[in-house]
């Protein structure tokens, strides 16, 4: 029996180019199970591209990604079966109801029928969508769609959650609910990688934060680590982020 459990996520020298543009360059990261990792960066910094590579939606040009020991490139299906991907634009079918959507998700992830049924009801009730379960998603507000998509992402009880701006469109009460749920999930052993533009969310939720800038990881660590890297004794994550990005922008080509 190994005393070192498999890392939840292990990324080595990850690089992705689109023509002449390098979207992600030499990215390394290792996360233990139960981690909550926040990935920050401006628009176009490479966060979503990285997340899509982890989710198996995009092939890397160089490097490797392992999720609980499964290589995304070599065994994508094993990775996908334990991963959930929630992009900033909810992946919904307008003509389906939330319940039908969850039935479909259960089919995609081969969740056992009775388990899926029970979990679908729990999730919809928890998201305050149970009464809306027979309305088509096309009639939903942005926040309701986001909640439905989140319920779909949680249905197969993933061990790795990749959340791209999961709080956009959510009202304050639901956002708090979701935050609590995510923290609860990490306590149960799930690993979460979250991107956000709202620094307070990352500061409050993530135990470790990475700052991306033009495809490169500028800084990585806890808030204290980042403060040290930025040379700031105090200051919020926003201050640190802006300083690190400004410093990196000076002297580097646009």
């Amino acid at each position: 029996m190994s005393t070192h459990p498999l890392p939840a996520l292990e990324i080595k020298s990850l690089t992705k180019r689109f023509g002449a543009k390098t979207a992600v360059s030499d990215f390394n990261l290792t996360l233990a199970p139960g981690s909550f990792y926040g990935l920050l960066g401006a628009n176009g910094a490479g966060k979503t591209t990285t997340m899509r590579m982890i989710a198996g939606l995009l092939q890397a040009d160089e490097g490797s990604i392992c999720v609980f020991g499964h290589d995304v490139g070599k065994d994508p299906r094993a990775v996908k079966s334990i991963t959930a991907w929630l992009p900033d634009e909810p992946l919904l079918y307008d003509k389906l109801t939330p319940l039908e959507y969850l039935e479909f998700i259960a089919g995609l992830w081969s969740v056992e029928g009775s388990v899926a049924e029970k979990r679908a009801e729990e999730l919809l009730r928890w998201m305050d969508l149970w009464e809306e379960r027979d309305k088509r998603c096309e009639t939903f507000s942005r926040g309701m769609k986001q909640k439905t998509a989140l319920a779909g992402a949680l249905l197969h009880d993933p061990k790795l959650l990749l959340l791209d701006e999961p709080f956009s469109g959510l009202d304050a009460a639901v956002a708090r609910q979701v935050k609590e749920l995510l923290v609860e999930k990490t306590k149960e052993g799930a690993t979460i990688v979250l991107t956000t533009h709202v620094m307070e969310i990352a500061e409050r939720l993530a135990e470790r934060v990475g700052i991306f800038h033009r495809g490169r990881l500028l800084a990585d660590g806890s808030l204290a680590d980042l403060r040290a890297q930025a040379g700031q004794a105090e200051g919020s994550l926003e201050d640190i982020f802006i300083q690190l990005v400004d410093d990196a922008s000076v002297g580097s080509p646009a």
Binding site: E100, E103, F104, G107, L108, S110, E117, D134, K135, T139
Partner: peptide, 25 residues
């Protein structure tokens, strides 16, 4: 919005094969 009709949960709908799920969707 469509008129709000609450349907009864059909457990068997969660137990259909994936091919049927895709077709149904």
């Amino acid at each position: 919005h469509a008129p709000h009709k609450i349907r009864k949960a059909h457990p068997q709908q969660f137990r259909r094969p994936a091919l049927v799920m895709v077709f149904h969707k």
